[in-house]
Measured scan of single mutants.
Amino acid sequence: EEERTFTNEEEARKAKKEAEKRGLRVTVTKDGTTWRVRIG
């Protein structure tokens, strides 16, 4: 499991799409101005 943080919503969405392409489970949460993308 890996967690990545982004300040840019577009980049967070891109990371989510890429992980889904690899067949991984992805959770995206917004924490104030930060987007957290949890993969795995």
Rank of each mutant, 00 (worst) to 15 (best):
E1A: 12
E1K: 08
E1F: 15
E1V: 14
E1T: 12
E2D: 08
E2A: 09
E3G: 05
E3A: 05
R4E: 07
R4F: 15
R4G: 05
T5H: 09
T5V: 14
F6P: 01
F6V: 02
F6W: 02
F6Q: 00
T7V: 08
T7N: 11
T7H: 10
T7K: 07
N8A: 04
N8S: 13
N8F: 05
E9R: 08
E9G: 06
E9L: 11
E10D: 11
E10K: 10
E11W: 04
A12L: 04
A12W: 04
A12N: 00
R13Q: 14
R13P: 00
R13V: 13
R13M: 15
K14V: 09
A15Y: 15
A15H: 08
K16V: 15
K17M: 14
K17A: 14
K17Y: 14
K17S: 13
K17V: 13
E18V: 05
E20K: 04
K21P: 00
K21N: 12
K21I: 10
R22D: 05
R22S: 07
R22Y: 07
R22N: 09
G23L: 02
L24E: 04
R25G: 04
V26S: 04
V26Y: 01
V26F: 02
V26Q: 00
V26I: 03
T27F: 08
T27R: 06
T27E: 08
V28C: 07
V28L: 14
T29F: 13
T29K: 05
D31F: 07
D31Y: 07
D31K: 05
D31M: 08
G32W: 01
G32R: 02
G32K: 04
G32P: 01
G32A: 04
G32D: 06
T33Y: 10
T33V: 10
T34L: 15
T34I: 14
T34E: 09
T34M: 12
T34N: 10
W35F: 05
W35Q: 01
W35E: 01
R36W: 08
R36K: 12
V37R: 00
V37K: 00
V37A: 01
R38W: 12
R38E: 09
R38K: 13
I39S: 04
I39W: 07
G40Y: 15
G40A: 13
G40N: 12
G40P: 04
